[in-house]
Computed example of a mutant assay.
Amino acid sequence: MRNSSRYLGLELAGAKNQKTALAVLEYYPTEQKVFLLDIYDRIAMEERESSDEALIALIEEFKPGDGPEAGRQVSKIGVNVPLVLPPCAACIRKACPMPAKCSVPAVRWMRGVTKKAARRPSTKKTVREFTPYTQRPIELHMRYEVMPGLPLSHRFEIDEALGGNRAPLTARMNFLLRHLAGGSGWIDAGDLERAGVIEIWPKLSVALLGIELGIPKRAISQYRHLEQGGHSREEILEALVEKHGLFVYDRDLRKLSQSLACFDAFICAYTALLADIGKCVKSPAGFPVKSGWINFPAKSSGARG
């Protein structure tokens, strides 16, 4: 059997709809080839199991066992939702001094980076009051350090971990992680590391891969659109096939092009692969990594070369 590694990408949606998708990639480092093994969509409640049970069972199929898949352990799982709660949400201190005086490392870092951004001409107009009960340090890092470096056409609004759009998904993911990572109570960075689960922002990965692959700005800005998105997603996939050694069956190529959820699941899996082979950006010195980190492609990324 040729040496290979397996990666999963999870595009998590609400438990009561059918938009959750899971992508499975196989990477052969010697040949520098990436194969999309399968893409599962519409993962939802079945007659005898809940949507959470169905999703956990599907992921468990790819873990080591006694069957034909034994030995093909999943190296990493890339997920599109927050894996760690904001510092105040997980705080167990009896007394709260308020964010302006808090000594918790993550909150202290947030306070410092906000002050720094307020003094910087390029970011001072975008500075907002930070709220460590809905935000994490990584969201501030993205807002003030990463987004300004992207072309205007590639930037996007950042959702907070416990903001209106993400809070239910963050809660669902924390519940799922108790089963996937074997933790108890609130999941911490140690649980995530042991389980090989990492957080991905598909929109950011697509933006950076688009720059590296020379994909037209139009395709990047429209890949999530209802009408033009299918063609743009196909354009991105074709570039990955040509330049990054990706192999996708025609039927799966159509599926990824037609379904944004499936496409984002694939991007999560592919970014997890890049993270595993050292082609994602590392956290800067002093960043409180235990508060959560987003894995995103570095310059000159790609599974080939």
Rank of each mutant, 00 (worst) to 15 (best):
Y7A: 07
Y7S: 03
E11W: 11
G14T: 08
A15W: 02
K19R: 15
Y27N: 01
P29G: 06
L36H: 02
D38H: 14
L55N: 03
I59R: 03
G65I: 09
D66C: 04
E69C: 10
N80T: 10
N80C: 07
C88T: 04
K94C: 03
S103V: 13
M110I: 13
K116N: 06
K116T: 12
A118M: 09
S122R: 12
R128C: 13
F130L: 03
P132L: 15
P132C: 13
Y133W: 11
T134R: 12
R136W: 08
H141R: 13
E145F: 11
V146M: 05
I158S: 01
N165Q: 12
T170D: 04
N174Q: 15
F175C: 02
R178S: 04
H179L: 08
G182L: 09
S184L: 08
W186I: 14
D188H: 07
E199I: 04
W201D: 05
V206R: 00
L209D: 06
E212G: 08
K217R: 14
G229D: 07
E234K: 14
K243G: 05
H244I: 01
F247P: 00
V248R: 01
D252H: 13
K255M: 13
L256C: 10
I267Q: 00
T271I: 05
T271K: 01
A272P: 00
L274C: 06
V281K: 10
V281W: 04
S283Y: 00
G286C: 01
N295L: 02
N295Y: 12
P297F: 04
S300I: 02
